[in-house]
Design a protein around this nucleic acid. Structure first.
Lengths: 122, 122
DNA sequence: CTGTATCCGTGAAGATACTG
DNA sequence: CAGTATCTTCACGGATACAG
């Protein structure tokens, strides 16, 4: 990732940049929000989200795990049982996301029409 | 937040999804961040950010403008003078971003080390 | 000063099939 | 059930040159 020359050290331009680095990915925000309800198994997660392929879901889960946002537990059973949960870091991040989520919910119809209008232009 | 998902009516899976749709882009968070200080001219913005090409910066500014997050004013002068400012929608979005920004600032060193550790692996 | 116009490399995401 | 393995596509972002 290219570092931005301005603002602060640690390789991030600002706190927002650091936070976004962890949640950038098409399904990551959704994963975080589902996991706020508690630990979930892989299949539950996949059904909850819907429309995501195994490959992509696994990839995003691995990213989040590597970034210490969530923890994966493999019970080494047959048939396989694996679950995912937020770490303390992940929970605090998810909490920080709440206002943004509320904003989106409040402005959703406006955002939807803006996006629709724009995506259908030539 | 809404417990569920899957396309909640307006084409977004949840409010967070809608919000992120507007700020996804490498420089957009930074642009919002700088514009919180007030209206800025194109050149100011470019210098503030640093390391971004004209093409990409313009592209992201256009996206934000089309999404009604910021307003562009062209003074029709020679030499050209153009400035950019947050709209009311943009300001409320930027405000909703503050907790996330704070989270990033508080956890920046941890995030930086996590990312560094991971990005240097094979 | 504020942009356009091209060309291009990269990687994220999707479709599909297969496995322990 | 919980993944892996390939193959493909395409939008994102970058470099460079040029224009009003």
């Amino acid at each position: 990732m290219a570092t931005h020359p301005q603002i602060c050290g640690d390789g991030f331009s600002c706190g927002l940049d650091a936070a976004l680095h962890l949640i950038s990915g098409k399904w990551k925000p959704l994963i975080l929000f589902f996991l706020r309800d508690g630990t979930k198994r892989y299949g539950e997660l996949k059904r909850s989200i819907g429309g995501v392929s195994d490959k992509v879901l696994i990839q995003q889960l691995k990213d989040l795990e590597a970034h210490r946002v969530l923890a994966r537990t493999d019970y080494q059973e047959v048939p396989p049982r694996v679950d995912y949960a937020l770490t303390p870091l992940g929970r605090s991040l998810a909490d920080a996301l709440v206002p943004l989520c509320s904003w989106g919910a409040e402005n959703m119809s406006e955002v939807a029409s803006i996006v629709a209008e724009r995506d259908t232009l030539p």
